[in-house]
Nucleic acid binder design. Sequence first.
DNA 1: GATGAATGAGTTTTCATTCAT
DNA 2: CATGAATGAAAACTCATTCAT
Lengths: 199, 199, 199, 199
Amino acid sequence: METKPQEQTRKPRADAVRNRERVLHAAKLVFSAGGPDASLEAVARQAGVGIGTLYRHFPTREDLFEAVYRREVEQLSELAEELKSEPSPVEALRRWLRSTVQFVATKKGMMAALAIVMTANSELAAYSHGHLTRSIGALLARAVEAGEVRADVTADDLLRALIGMCYMHDQTGWQQSVLRLLDVFVDGLRVGKGRAREA
Amino acid sequence: METKPQEQTRKPRADAVRNRERVLHAAKLVFSAGGPDASLEAVARQAGVGIGTLYRHFPTREDLFEAVYRREVEQLSELAEELKSEPSPVEALRRWLRSTVQFVATKKGMMAALAIVMTANSELAAYSHGHLTRSIGALLARAVEAGEVRADVTADDLLRALIGMCYMHDQTGWQQSVLRLLDVFVDGLRVGKGRAREA
Amino acid sequence: METKPQEQTRKPRADAVRNRERVLHAAKLVFSAGGPDASLEAVARQAGVGIGTLYRHFPTREDLFEAVYRREVEQLSELAEELKSEPSPVEALRRWLRSTVQFVATKKGMMAALAIVMTANSELAAYSHGHLTRSIGALLARAVEAGEVRADVTADDLLRALIGMCYMHDQTGWQQSVLRLLDVFVDGLRVGKGRAREA
Amino acid sequence: METKPQEQTRKPRADAVRNRERVLHAAKLVFSAGGPDASLEAVARQAGVGIGTLYRHFPTREDLFEAVYRREVEQLSELAEELKSEPSPVEALRRWLRSTVQFVATKKGMMAALAIVMTANSELAAYSHGHLTRSIGALLARAVEAGEVRADVTADDLLRALIGMCYMHDQTGWQQSVLRLLDVFVDGLRVGKGRAREA
DNA sequence: GATGAATGAGTTTTCATTCAT
DNA sequence: CATGAATGAAAACTCATTCAT
């Protein structure tokens, strides 16, 4: 504060950063295994830090959820960005959907935590919803413009379907089931398929 | 069947019946609002009975879930039965799906019931799941046999897709979104639509 | 509720009453010894009840303070009533003041707790202030009417002086000190003593 | 005294001095509001310094108390010294008492200082108590020697009475009340007033 | 049968104090 | 020196479950 006036927040201490990471990593594991009600003490133990340290970084359970959640969302969003280079727009979409399932598969109980954040914390919900729909929207728009996919389904719809299907992840075989469903769904999206229904 | 004197289950006392109903009603409210981990004390309080009374009627949390949600699930099952008389198998399927959405929109607690069916491992889940998938399975089988619908999707899958789509039913416009998604999904189910994927 | 409609609150269970008393008694001891920050766990232990029981009876620390406090105040108030039969009004006053010191002497740290409640809980403060000033006021009025005591001091003033003097009760010998001070004070109250000041 | 090179206490760094002041100021505020058990973190936060800095300046809570309150107490002591020149010993006493009330009314924290003097067992309390009682004792001794005031009251008693009366200084009108009480008290101190008690 | 009191294990939460940067 | 992160002991608090009335 004395010598370098341009410093507003002293360099984050090395061990603090490391501990923060540890806690986040541990939280992912523990919440995945034990659901959103898992004990924070357990998270701290898993992270190898004191419970006080956990609380310093994340004063409330929700703060911890949020921090974990944000990076998850960002990873999904980044994946969507990468898939923009995939030649077939429909396949890009399909692959993003399938990848997301894989992603969720590695963090079972995490979905519940994410769902909680989605409904409870509107600021975060808005952030991630916007982030994700923007990414998916881009994939979707490409497919629609290419004339491969019907235009009456929104990124929002897509997200709803995906999250919802993944939410039910407690039975054995849920993953295969969701992959099957996604195929059905993507097939349904493709144009040139029968509009035979009561129209 | 109840009139024989050697019966072990005496006349159910009037207030006992009333209390049972109260608890059931309260449980639906409280679980809907606070999730399945909501405090049983809260349920009793909401019902206006003592916690001991709740425990007498429902010795375990599972027992309470069961009593609350079994009848909800059975209604859906019955609806599926009725639709067997619908001439077009695909339309029967579609109508069941759409009707279920209406149900969810109307009956608070239906989602929770369905989520439990797909999620938990209780006796209730097993019973209800079996009941329900059997009914839906019949609808599905008809459509498959008629050659109208692909054969690689199970009643279980169908249920999962439906529940999932309905899961986020707190955003405005969720109902329209789900109906759109169901149409896409049913379209995807119909045979003769492109198997272009991964080829 | 069924047979005796005039019952609004079922007879308080015997053990509940006993436990409540135990906790109150223990609280008096523990707060007296350890001051107002003493652990509630310690109170429960001293009372021989579970911590949950303590919380059931007194959901917050303040509730417990309050309950303890009320009876203390009532005891002091009753003492003032009894002293109405004392022939000399001034002596009645003096004896009440001295008795109060004895009273406080048995519950050292309790004063701090009571002070906290007095400032924090205005409802209670009003109640006890009213209660006490009414009692003291009666003693005082008798003495004033008898022409033994000056009329420009209120029950409120008296209470302030008494409570204040007792507040500083951490030094050895405080009790003797306060008793000396009370004598000086009562002497000052008597009429016919010099009004010599700045006149 | 500071200029010799072998000095162990180097020039006090400018920011160190500033921080010390900040902490002192913050401590007065925080202890006044939250009592003597207020969190030291809160003090540091209020001061805008790190908790470590607070600890460097004041290794123990007592050290902080001391630094905060010592100068307050010394002011009262000095006032008593000045009043030694007042011709009437009783009036000197009375004026000191009344002045102290003014002090309390004006200077937030003075009460806390005085309470500590009479209550705690720290080195600070001993020092301040000695300092103060010596000054008041001189005033008192003069009055006793002049035969104007009874001899069985100590400087300590006087202090206790004064502090006590001021203790409840949050009610409206407390100041008038205390001034009234002090007059009663001083009247009680004067000799030649009735020793009628317990006779 | 109904009630609500009792219990205590399990969690959350706070803070004084120490230490690495 | 200043800082604030780390730590863990200690307390607060909640709630499922059992039981006396």
